Simulated assay, not measured.
Amino acid sequence: MIDMRTVVLVEGASDEAAILALAERQGRDLAAEGVSIVAMGGATNIGAHLDEYGPHGLGVRLAGLCDAREEAHFARGLERVGLGSGLTRGDLEALGFFVCVADLEDELIRALGTDAVEHVLDAAGELGAFRTLQKQPAWRGRPVHAQLRRFMGSIGGRKLRYSRLFAQALGPDQVPRPLHLLLAHLSATRTG
Protein backbone atom coordinates (compact mmCIF):
# COMPACT_ATOMS: atom_id res chain seq x y z
CA MET A 1 0.00 0.00 0.00
CA ILE A 2 1.31 3.43 -0.92
CA ASP A 3 1.59 5.94 1.91
CA MET A 4 0.02 8.92 0.14
CA ARG A 5 0.15 12.08 2.24
CA THR A 6 0.48 14.68 -0.52
CA VAL A 7 -0.98 14.78 -4.03
CA VAL A 8 0.57 17.05 -6.64
CA LEU A 9 -1.94 17.89 -9.38
CA VAL A 10 -0.35 18.61 -12.76
CA GLU A 11 -1.82 19.11 -16.19
CA GLY A 12 -0.05 16.28 -17.98
CA ALA A 13 2.57 13.57 -18.09
CA SER A 14 5.35 15.94 -19.19
CA ASP A 15 4.91 17.95 -15.96
CA GLU A 16 5.06 14.74 -13.95
CA ALA A 17 8.21 13.59 -15.77
CA ALA A 18 10.02 16.90 -15.16
CA ILE A 19 9.14 16.95 -11.45
CA LEU A 20 10.25 13.35 -10.97
CA ALA A 21 13.51 13.93 -12.87
CA LEU A 22 14.34 17.01 -10.79
CA ALA A 23 13.49 15.25 -7.53
CA GLU A 24 15.65 12.31 -8.54
CA ARG A 25 18.56 14.66 -9.28
CA GLN A 26 18.16 15.98 -5.73
CA GLY A 27 18.40 12.41 -4.42
CA ARG A 28 14.73 12.35 -3.48
CA ASP A 29 12.20 9.55 -3.85
CA LEU A 30 8.85 11.35 -3.83
CA ALA A 31 6.84 8.14 -3.53
CA ALA A 32 8.82 7.18 -0.42
CA GLU A 33 8.06 10.67 0.95
CA GLY A 34 4.33 9.99 0.53
CA VAL A 35 4.01 12.23 -2.54
CA SER A 36 1.93 11.11 -5.49
CA ILE A 37 1.96 13.13 -8.71
CA VAL A 38 -1.31 12.98 -10.60
CA ALA A 39 -1.32 13.94 -14.29
CA MET A 40 -4.91 15.12 -14.76
CA GLY A 41 -5.10 15.09 -18.56
CA GLY A 42 -5.63 18.86 -18.67
CA ALA A 43 -6.27 21.71 -16.28
CA THR A 44 -10.03 21.65 -16.79
CA ASN A 45 -10.08 18.33 -14.92
CA ILE A 46 -8.92 19.92 -11.68
CA GLY A 47 -12.41 20.01 -10.19
CA ALA A 48 -12.84 16.23 -10.26
CA HIS A 49 -9.38 15.72 -8.80
CA LEU A 50 -9.96 18.24 -6.02
CA ASP A 51 -13.21 16.43 -5.23
CA GLU A 52 -11.31 13.14 -5.00
CA TYR A 53 -8.22 14.27 -3.06
CA GLY A 54 -9.25 17.56 -1.45
CA PRO A 55 -10.92 18.41 1.85
CA HIS A 56 -14.23 16.74 0.94
CA GLY A 57 -12.53 13.65 -0.51
CA LEU A 58 -9.45 11.88 0.82
CA GLY A 59 -8.33 15.07 2.59
CA VAL A 60 -4.66 14.73 1.69
CA ARG A 61 -2.31 17.70 1.39
CA LEU A 62 -2.46 19.20 -2.06
CA ALA A 63 0.02 20.94 -4.32
CA GLY A 64 0.14 21.60 -8.03
CA LEU A 65 1.72 23.04 -11.13
CA CYS A 66 -0.05 24.67 -14.08
CA ASP A 67 0.53 26.86 -17.12
CA ALA A 68 -0.25 30.58 -16.87
CA ARG A 69 -3.25 30.25 -19.17
CA GLU A 70 -4.74 27.64 -16.82
CA GLU A 71 -4.19 29.57 -13.58
CA ALA A 72 -7.84 30.67 -13.41
CA HIS A 73 -9.07 27.04 -13.67
CA PHE A 74 -6.87 26.10 -10.72
CA ALA A 75 -7.93 29.12 -8.66
CA ARG A 76 -11.66 28.51 -9.30
CA GLY A 77 -11.30 24.83 -8.42
CA LEU A 78 -9.50 25.56 -5.16
CA GLU A 79 -12.07 28.21 -4.27
CA ARG A 80 -14.94 25.82 -5.02
CA VAL A 81 -13.64 23.26 -2.50
CA GLY A 82 -13.23 25.91 0.17
CA LEU A 83 -9.50 26.62 0.00
CA GLY A 84 -9.86 30.36 -0.35
CA SER A 85 -11.65 33.05 -2.31
CA GLY A 86 -10.41 35.63 -4.78
CA LEU A 87 -7.13 33.71 -4.94
CA THR A 88 -4.16 35.61 -6.32
CA ARG A 89 -0.99 33.99 -7.61
CA GLY A 90 0.57 34.63 -4.21
CA ASP A 91 -2.37 32.89 -2.55
CA LEU A 92 -1.97 29.93 -4.90
CA GLU A 93 1.71 29.68 -4.01
CA ALA A 94 0.89 29.78 -0.30
CA LEU A 95 -1.40 26.79 -0.92
CA GLY A 96 1.40 24.97 -2.81
CA PHE A 97 0.19 25.64 -6.37
CA PHE A 98 2.75 27.14 -8.74
CA VAL A 99 2.33 28.70 -12.18
CA CYS A 100 4.67 28.34 -15.16
CA VAL A 101 5.14 31.62 -17.09
CA ALA A 102 3.65 30.39 -20.44
CA ASP A 103 4.09 26.66 -19.89
CA LEU A 104 6.52 24.01 -18.67
CA GLU A 105 8.39 23.80 -21.98
CA ASP A 106 8.87 27.56 -22.02
CA GLU A 107 10.26 27.45 -18.47
CA LEU A 108 12.69 24.64 -19.27
CA ILE A 109 13.89 26.17 -22.55
CA ARG A 110 14.47 29.56 -20.94
CA ALA A 111 16.27 27.98 -17.97
CA LEU A 112 18.62 25.92 -20.16
CA GLY A 113 19.07 28.44 -22.94
CA THR A 114 18.61 27.65 -26.62
CA ASP A 115 22.19 26.45 -27.18
CA ALA A 116 21.93 23.86 -24.39
CA VAL A 117 18.50 22.78 -25.63
CA GLU A 118 19.97 22.21 -29.10
CA HIS A 119 22.71 20.10 -27.51
CA VAL A 120 20.04 17.96 -25.83
CA LEU A 121 18.24 17.59 -29.18
CA ASP A 122 21.53 16.62 -30.84
CA ALA A 123 22.27 13.99 -28.18
CA ALA A 124 18.75 12.61 -28.67
CA GLY A 125 19.24 12.41 -32.45
CA GLU A 126 16.64 15.06 -33.34
CA LEU A 127 18.69 18.14 -34.14
CA GLY A 128 18.25 17.45 -37.87
CA ALA A 129 14.47 17.34 -37.47
CA PHE A 130 14.60 20.64 -35.59
CA ARG A 131 16.71 22.21 -38.38
CA THR A 132 14.05 21.07 -40.86
CA LEU A 133 11.36 22.87 -38.84
CA GLN A 134 13.53 26.01 -38.78
CA LYS A 135 13.63 26.01 -42.61
CA GLN A 136 9.85 25.85 -43.00
CA PRO A 137 8.45 29.16 -44.32
CA ALA A 138 6.17 29.64 -41.30
CA TRP A 139 9.11 29.31 -38.87
CA ARG A 140 12.02 30.73 -40.87
CA GLY A 141 13.46 33.80 -39.19
CA ARG A 142 11.43 33.38 -36.00
CA PRO A 143 13.23 33.44 -32.63
CA VAL A 144 14.93 30.12 -31.82
CA HIS A 145 13.06 29.97 -28.51
CA ALA A 146 9.71 30.08 -30.34
CA GLN A 147 10.92 27.48 -32.84
CA LEU A 148 11.95 25.16 -30.02
CA ARG A 149 8.58 25.51 -28.31
CA ARG A 150 6.83 24.65 -31.56
CA PHE A 151 9.15 21.70 -32.11
CA MET A 152 8.24 20.29 -28.69
CA GLY A 153 4.58 20.16 -29.64
CA SER A 154 4.99 19.00 -33.24
CA ILE A 155 4.96 15.24 -32.56
CA GLY A 156 3.07 13.32 -29.88
CA GLY A 157 5.28 12.22 -27.01
CA ARG A 158 7.98 14.79 -27.66
CA LYS A 159 6.99 17.03 -24.71
CA LEU A 160 7.10 14.03 -22.39
CA ARG A 161 10.48 12.87 -23.66
CA TYR A 162 12.13 16.28 -23.55
CA SER A 163 10.66 17.50 -20.28
CA ARG A 164 12.59 14.68 -18.62
CA LEU A 165 15.76 15.26 -20.68
CA PHE A 166 15.70 19.03 -20.14
CA ALA A 167 15.14 18.61 -16.41
CA GLN A 168 18.09 16.22 -16.25
CA ALA A 169 20.28 18.73 -18.14
CA LEU A 170 19.56 21.63 -15.75
CA GLY A 171 22.27 22.76 -13.39
CA PRO A 172 21.28 23.11 -9.72
CA ASP A 173 21.02 26.90 -10.12
CA GLN A 174 18.97 26.66 -13.33
CA VAL A 175 15.78 25.06 -12.01
CA PRO A 176 12.84 27.24 -13.10
CA ARG A 177 11.15 29.13 -10.28
CA PRO A 178 7.82 27.24 -10.25
CA LEU A 179 9.55 23.86 -10.18
CA HIS A 180 12.03 24.99 -7.55
CA LEU A 181 9.23 26.36 -5.35
CA LEU A 182 7.13 23.21 -5.79
CA LEU A 183 9.99 20.92 -4.74
CA ALA A 184 10.80 23.20 -1.80
CA HIS A 185 7.14 23.14 -0.79
CA LEU A 186 7.15 19.33 -0.91
CA SER A 187 10.26 19.30 1.30
CA ALA A 188 8.53 21.59 3.79
CA THR A 189 5.40 19.44 3.90
CA ARG A 190 7.57 16.38 4.46
CA THR A 191 8.91 17.86 7.68
CA GLY A 192 5.85 19.90 8.66
Rank of each mutant, 00 (worst) to 15 (best):
G171R: 15
L160Q: 13
G54T: 03
P172L: 00
A116F: 00
G54C: 05
G54W: 01
S85W: 03
E107R: 00
N45S: 15
I155V: 15
F98W: 12
R140A: 15
T114N: 04
L95M: 08
T114A: 07
V117W: 00
D115N: 14
A146K: 04
A138M: 11
S163C: 05
V99Y: 02
G141A: 09
R76N: 10
G156E: 15
H56C: 09
G90L: 14
V81E: 05
A123C: 02
A124Q: 12
G82F: 01
E118D: 05
C66D: 00
G125C: 08
R69G: 08
A123Q: 14
A167G: 14
R110L: 11
P172C: 09
L121S: 01
W139N: 15
G171W: 11
Q168N: 08
Q134G: 04
Q136W: 01
F74I: 15
Q136R: 12
D115C: 05
K135C: 12
Q168W: 03
T44N: 13
R142I: 01
V81T: 09
L133H: 09
V81L: 11
F98S: 03
A68R: 15
P55S: 02
G77P: 12
E93W: 13
D91W: 11
G86V: 10
A167N: 01
Q147M: 04
Y162R: 09
L104P: 08
F98Q: 03
R140H: 13
W139L: 14
H56F: 06
R80F: 02
P137W: 01
G113W: 01
G141N: 08
H145A: 06
P172I: 05
A146R: 13
G41N: 04
T44H: 14
A129P: 03
R149M: 05
C100H: 07
V144L: 11
F166I: 02
L92E: 06
G84H: 10
L104F: 07
D67Y: 08
L65E: 04
G157C: 11
F74W: 11
G171D: 04
D103M: 11
G157K: 13
L87K: 06
G128E: 15
A48I: 06
A68E: 13
K159Y: 03
T114E: 13
L62C: 10
L58Y: 06
H119M: 04
H119W: 12
E105N: 09
Q136F: 00
A138R: 15
Y162M: 07
F97P: 04
R69I: 12
K159S: 11
G141V: 05
E79C: 05
L83H: 04
Q136V: 07
A124M: 07
I109Y: 01
G113I: 06
R89D: 02
G59S: 14
S85T: 14
D67Q: 10
V38A: 05
S163R: 01
F151Q: 08
T88L: 09
N45A: 13
A68D: 01
A169L: 04
R142A: 05
G42Y: 07
D91I: 12
A138P: 13
L92W: 03
A167F: 07
L127K: 12
A111Q: 02
H49K: 09
G42S: 09
E71W: 00
K135P: 02
S85C: 03
H145M: 07
T88Y: 03
F166C: 09
R161V: 11
G86F: 10
G153M: 00
D106H: 08
L62I: 08
A169P: 02
K135A: 15
R158K: 10
S154A: 12
V144K: 14
M40D: 12
H73K: 09
A75Q: 06
R69L: 07
P137T: 06
